[in-house]
């Protein structure tokens, strides 16, 4: 399944936050969205997943999602959004319970996704017992459990320390290399963008417009070892955002 964004305009209380967004999200690719803070990146992601309605324009799905997909558009949140009263397995199970799968199949899916995210040993742990990186792996497992057609990731690594972030990036690349998935990945971290993005969409400061779309052809699996070559791309992105980021930093919120 692929997505098209057609002439998206969006306002919050009269203030435009997104302006004339046209974008293709091709199947099997990771599209990163970067931009200065407050440029409407997260809003755009909420529009793509149908958590908010755009004032103008539309997000279109092309083709039916795979038949076995339980939740075609699935989010991974920055703050993990785990239920603190449910165990690791219980949190994954939450996403499956409304689908009437039967006990055996639910168990099988939970075991499978926990194995893929290296969490099998922590099945019965509560979120408060887990590190930030493990919490986000639980959220990734929960997202994988519903077999999404498109993963919508909202700064998934921003709440983590830089070492954990590095490890989770490797995990994401590993997951994608085994079974390529479609994803929209919002981040303010340019390093994550050049490591994970096939296409990097640069948004301007509020109201967010697409300034440029940068493509990187290097296979994801090779990127960790070829950071030198990626540095120029990252530099290019930074030069695009730099002035806007500085200006955005001086803005008053709600002004």
């Amino acid at each position: 399944m692929q997505l098209t964004l057609n002439g998206i305009n969006h306002r919050y209380g009269g203030m435009p936050v997104l302006s004339d967004i046209d974008l293709e999200i091709p199947a099997g690719e990771i599209v990163c969205i970067v931009g200065p803070s407050g440029c409407g990146k997260s809003t755009l992601l909420r529009l793509i997943g149908g958590l908010e309605r755009p004032d103008e324009g539309a997000v279109l799905e092309h083709g039916a999602p795979p038949a076995d997909s339980l939740n075609p558009l699935t989010y991974i949140f920055q703050d993990f959004a785990l239920l603190p009263w449910r165990s690791v397995a219980g949190n994954v199970s939450l996403a499956l319970e409304d689908h009437g799968l039967g006990k055996a199949e639910t168990e099988a899916i939970i075991d499978d996704v926990l194995a893929r995210t290296k969490l099998s040993d922590f099945k019965n742990a509560l979120p408060r017992q887990l590190s930030g990186g493990m919490k986000q792996r639980v959220a990734i497992a929960r997202a994988l459990a519903v077999r999404p057609a498109v993963l919508l990731m909202d700064e998934p690594l921003s709440a983590l320390d830089s070492q954990t972030r590095e490890l989770l990036m490797d995990d994401l690349v590993g997951l994608w290399s085994k079974t390529p998935f479609t994803a929209v990945y919002v981040t303010h971290n340019l390093n994550e963008a050049v490591r994970l993005g096939h296409k990097i969409v640069v948004l301007s400061r509020r109201p967010g417009r697409i300034r440029e779309v940068v493509s990187i052809d290097m296979p994801l699996a090779e990127r960790a070892d070829r950071v030198g070559e990626l540095a120029s791309k990252q530099e290019q992105l930074w030069s695009l955002i730099r002035d806007e980021a500085a200006a955005a930093d001086m803005e008053l919120i709600d002004a």
Partner: peptide, 21 residues
């Protein structure tokens, strides 16, 4: 509210969101 939005994003029914979240 983040947890409620999470429930909605996974397509949980209204009853499930009230009962489980």
């Amino acid at each position: 509210r983040g947890l409620i939005r999470m429930g909605q994003s996974f397509g949980l029914s209204w009853v499930s969101i009230v009962r489980k979240i």
